[in-house]
């Protein structure tokens, strides 16, 4: 038998240092060549800053009513106009970023680890466990997620928490699939074999050696999915199943502005622009992140 055939092929370098360790500086340099991606990141950064400093930035209170000043069009005193209770729409949008950021963080914290756990266990253990876990993943993936989220929110009662749970319940399968695919590649690499030789326990292998390698692609995928998650959350809010009034949730604001849309367009239009910009930013940032962190799947 030819000896050279038994030498395993080297796994391509995307697993090694070049993917993670190319340095923060070069990532920024790559990003600067992607003006749209840069724009996406800046918007997201702004979103977080606005959410943190909302009380300092907002010119008015988001809930203070002023019935002598209702449904005023955009002007120098109220940049985005006022709503049917005379509340300043811009201030409500600014405080609304808190709900958006909260939703995004909560869904990420639930969906990311859950999807990764299912994916890497399936990929690492293999066999029947893998078959069962992936079957479940495929089934949940084949569900219509918005409809299911609607039904869940209806059963559990409206509210921001239920909306987050409902979205998370159908949000994990793409992450699980991705984590499994990555695990299948990493599992046979030399450094994992070496760790195994040193006597690392399966749990240690999973969490110290395999899971970290899945994180970049999971982050990319989460960022890209976040645009859809924001739209679903806004749709739930629009249908009255998300955060409850008087909370300045963007989808709910559109819903209440709908009643006045023909004469007072700004009440419904302004929150929609906020949703569009945020969702667009996530899409752009996700695309750029993918190109930087995950050259294999780079935009062709």
């Amino acid at each position: 038998m030819n000896v050279s055939q038994t030498v395993p092929p080297r796994t391509k370098s995307f697993l090694s240092a070049s993917r993670l360790g190319s340095g923060f500086g070069s990532a920024i340099a790559k990003l600067s060549r992607e003006p749209l991606g840069m724009f996406g990141f800046i918007v997201l950064l702004l979103l977080v800053v606005i959410a943190i400093f909302a009380p300092l930035i907002a010119p008015y209170s988001p809930t203070a009513q002023n019935l002598s000043n209702v449904l005023k069009p955009p002007s120098w005193t109220h940049w985005a106009g006022t709503d049917e209770f005379g509340r300043d729409i811009l201030s409500r949008l600014i405080f609304g970023t808190r709900i958006t950021v909260q939703t995004v963080l909560a869904v990420t914290v639930i969906v990311g680890p859950l999807g990764m756990l299912i994916g890497i266990v399936a990929g690492f253990v293999g066999g029947r466990t893998d078959a069962i876990l992936m079957r479940i993943t495929d089934i949940v993936l084949s569900f219509p997620s918005l409809i299911l989220a609607l039904a869940f929110a209806a059963a559990l009662g409206a509210g921001l928490e239920t909306a987050i749970i409902a979205i998370s319940l159908t949000g994990w399968p793409p992450i699980a699939r991705l984590a499994r695919a990555e695990t299948l590649i990493v599992r046979n690499t030399d450094y994992v074999a070496a760790a195994r030789l040193y006597g690392a326990s399966p749990l240690r292998l999973l969490f110290r050696y395999i899971a970290p390698m899945c994180i970049p692609s999971v982050v990319v995928r989460l960022t890209m999915n976040m645009a859809g998650i924001i739209l679903t959350a806004a749709a739930l809010g629009f249908l009255g199943l998300g955060a409850q009034p008087p909370a300045p949730e963007w989808g709910a604001m559109i819903s209440s502005g709908r009643k006045f849309m023909l004469d007072n367009w700004w009440v419904a239009v302004m929150p929609g622009i906020a949703i569009l910009v945020t969702s667009l930013a996530f899409n752009l940032a996700g695309d750029a992140l993918r190109d930087i962190l995950d050259p294999r799947h780079a935009r062709s």
């Binding site: 629009f238 559109i254 502005g257 929609g272």
Partner: peptide, 11 residues
């Protein structure tokens, strides 16, 4: 991919 369809409908 980014536009909220219900809002687009209103617009």
């Amino acid at each position: 991919h980014s536009i909220p369809v219900f809002w687009f409908g209103i617009v």
